[in-house]
Structures are given as structure tokens and as C-alpha cells.
């Protein structure tokens, strides 16, 4: 479904991704794990076209994404739920959700999708007139997920959705991602929370220093000596 072929990405002169290649298959949950600075977020930003690869290609259902401007990516059915939520703090919850459904089919079905999002997150419905900036961390993350869903995505990319949330909320968010996946949305998840994500995913890739070092199913990686030593501390 999404095919990333040997992308090299630079911040100025500094190369941060080296020849990253991976594939996301339809309806699966794929995880990119790695420590700080491994290039996970950079990979997602490149797929969203916020960064342009110096070389390599990104294809989504045989359409090249790497030459599209960032505002066209969402029309292809790819949505990015960015790190640190990146909401519009001085807009209300409802306005934030509307901003997720500006074009095409998503706009036509806006009301229906909004009801669906409110059914997933009743808390958001209670607070729909409240400024997004006044929500708690967990609620903000729910809103970020909801805003992503509003675009009726085929592929949803999550950048560290567990960041800054309490362990119980982390479980809620992961359970929710699983639920969204079961309803037919493909998931690309970036996480530092290795134990929990490997347990829930179909397949995973391990990034280190901007390079792709390992791949396998969640179970395989859980059993891998390198992963156990470096990420799980066993």
C-alpha cells in the first residue's frame, strides 16, 4: 500500500535518514521503533511531504507522494497525527475536527464522521465548544486522533501517541488504534514504547541512527537478542 524506497533525507547538510526502505501492507499495523534521534519522526514528516527526500521515492497505491506539496497528501488518504498533537489551541474542539475534513469526500461526509468521532470519544462531545488548548493531555491526544479520522483516511500515521500520557491512558490510546485498524484503516505507528507496541503490531522495523537495521513480526522482534538487550533491557 505504502512503499518507501531508499529515501535519503537531510536537514541542511546533515543527513538524518540513510537509505530507508520499507513497505506498509493494506490493513496492517506497522510500527517503526527506535530511540531518540533514530529518524522515526523524520520518516513520517517525509511521507507527509513536510520534508523532501534528496533521493528515493515514496509511493502510495502507485501514486508518487514525494513530489506532492504537503496539502495534497491528505487528499490521497494519508493522514499524519503529529508528535505533540499539534492542535489549534485557540479553536474549539469542534472547529479542530472540522479542520480535519476540508476537502472532497471527507467534507461531504463531515457530519457523519463527526458523530462517529464523538461516539469513540464521548469526552470530546461534552467539550465540543471548549478551546482545544484548555483540554487535558489525554483529551488533546483524543482530539488529535479524532481530527485525523475526520479526513476518512486509508492510512493513518501516528507519531508517538503515548507521549506524556499516564500508563492507563497509553493503554486506552493503543486499544483505540487497534480498534481503528479493525475498522479497516491501515496504521503506521512510530513509538519509543517498545514493549507495548511490539505486542500489538503485525510487523515492525527497527531504526538506529537513521538506518533500517531490523525487521520482522512483533513476536520475532520480541525474541530478538539485540532488541531485548537494547530496547527491552532484558
Amino acid at each position: 500500500m505504502l512503499r518507501v524506497n531508499g529515501i535519503n533525507v537531510f536537514y541542511g547538510d546533515l543527513q538524518v535518514l540513510w537509505d530507508i526502505t520499507f513497505e506498509v501492507k493494506e490493513k496492517e499495523i506497522l510500527v517503526l521503533v527506535g530511540s531518540n534521534g533514530a529518524g522515526k519522526s523524520t520518516t513520517l514528516k517525509t511521507i507527509s511531504s513536510l520534508l523532501t527526500p534528496a533521493s528515493g521515492t515514496i509511493e502510495f497505491n502507485d501514486i508518487r507522494l514525494d513530489h506532492l506539496p504537503p496539502n495534497k497528501i491528505i487528499e490521497q488518504g494519508v493522514v499524519h497525527v503529529p508528535e505533540g498533537r499539534r492542535l489549534f489551541p485557540e479553536m474549539s474542539v469542534e472547529e479542530n475536527l472540522i479542520m480535519g475534513s476540508l476537502y472532497g469526500e471527507a467534507k461531504a461526509k463531515r457530519n457523519g464522521t463527526m458523530d462517529y468521532v464523538y461516539s469513540l470519544f464521548p469526552r470530546l462531545k461534552e467539550r465540543r465548544k471548549q478551546m482545544a488548548g484548555t483540554l487535558s493531555g489525554g483529551e488533546q491526544q483524543m482530539l488529535a486522533v479524532g481530527r485525523g479520522l475526520m479526513s476518512k483516511p486509508k492510512l493513518m500515521m501516528f507519531d508517538e501517541p503515548s507521549l506524556g500520557l499516564s500508563p492507563i491512558l497509553v493503554q486506552d490510546i493503543f486499544g483505540l488504534i487497534k480498534k481503528i485498524n479493525q475498522e479497516g484503516v491501515t496504521i503506521l505507528l512510530v513509538e519509543q514504547n517498545v514493549t507495548q507496541t511490539l505486542a500489538m503490531c503485525d510487523r515492525a522495523y527497527v531504526l538506529e541512527n537513521g538506518r533500517n537495521v531490523l525487521e520482522g513480526t512483533g513476536k520475532e522482534l520480541m525474541a530478538n537478542d539485540h532488541v531485548r538487550e537494547v530496547y527491552l533491557g532484558i
Binding site: 513536510l50 504537503p70 491528505i74 499524519h80 503529529p82 489551541p89 479542520m99 480535519g100 476540508l102 479526513s151
Partner: peptide, 21 residues
Amino acid sequence: GYYFVSIREDEDAASSLGINT
């Protein structure tokens, strides 16, 4: 108006949501 405010609040997020910033 909403597009303008969204650009002020977070330009990257706005463009990720399909606004030609």
C-alpha cells in the same frame, strides 16, 4: 478566517490537513 487562524496556530499541522498555506 479559519484557514488564517489555523496557519497562525500551527502552520505544519494546517498544511498536513490539506490547507495550501
